[in-house]
Design a protein around this nucleic acid. Structure first.
Lengths: 129, 129
DNA sequence: ATACATGCAAACACTTTGCAGCACA
DNA sequence: TGTGCTGCAAAGTGTTTGCATGTAT
């Protein structure tokens, strides 16, 4: 019994998608909202949050959950890893290949079904050193 | 200029430490608080949060940041990975060896100082299948 | 026509903090 | 005896939701 949802293509949704695709620095929801507010002050924050979630579920953007603070979003939908700067809070791509077989390495363990994994690095970015 | 703190050994702190050490199921702060409340109703939630943080900084317990929901704490202080059940929310140890050299694999990249990493798995535990 | 989306504000979950009094070292 | 700790309540942060209205299909 899947929840079949026919997503609509509203103006607000298009604005959110476009905005994320034009931001290359892994913005969080609030940053996306601030950016949108400048040009479209009528778009509410709830709508931004709702659409980010829907677009991520549709696979049009990537949702990057964070271990601390706000989650981020990425126009690059291919699974990849990130590092968060401990000083400025910035999020950057990491060029470690995606470990697609890391789950199978532990599958032997008790009947767990392992579905996904995230690796999050922490450190200091060049600008903050 | 390090912040030198002389931590005191208060009754409340001992209670928090003991409670975490007696819980083997990776409790979050609120769960620790609930457990403590039953025997020591006078201990406040703020004190539990404060002490969990201090004890983790002291290395007496392990703080496990989570990608969603509340952070957990572990009496086992050796760095290791965890899997969170998507259905029951339970957190369990994973028997993947700690990848102590994973940072060096990407150190060549632009002047990042990579200090730590976390791998968090998601899936379904045996009981929830 | 009707299911889905919106704006607003309020609620929510988790955590931290200001403050006055208390207690360990 | 002084700094660190406590309890309490309030505030903070990030996110979701209830509801009445609006709109894409």
């Amino acid at each position: 019994m899947q929840e079949l949802k026919k997503n609509r293509n509203t103006l607000q949704r298009r604005i959110v998608l476009e905005t994320v695709q034009n931001m290359t620095n892994h913005p969080d929801a609030d940053t996306v909202y601030e950016k949108i507010s400048k040009e479209h002050p009528l778009v509410s924050k709830a709508t931004v949050y709702r659409n980010l979630k829907i677009l991520a579920k549709q696979g049009l953007i990537l949702h990057i959950p964070m271990l601390d603070g706000a989650d981020c979003f990425d126009f690059n939908c291919l699974p990849h890893y990130h590092i968060k700067c401990r000083k400025c809070g910035g999020v950057f791509d990491v060029d470690l290949p995606y470990q697609k077989d890391i789950c199978s390495k532990i599958n032997r363990k008790r009947g767990f079904i392992i579905e996904s994994h995230q690796i999050v690095f922490s450190g200091v970015c060049p600008d903050c050193q």
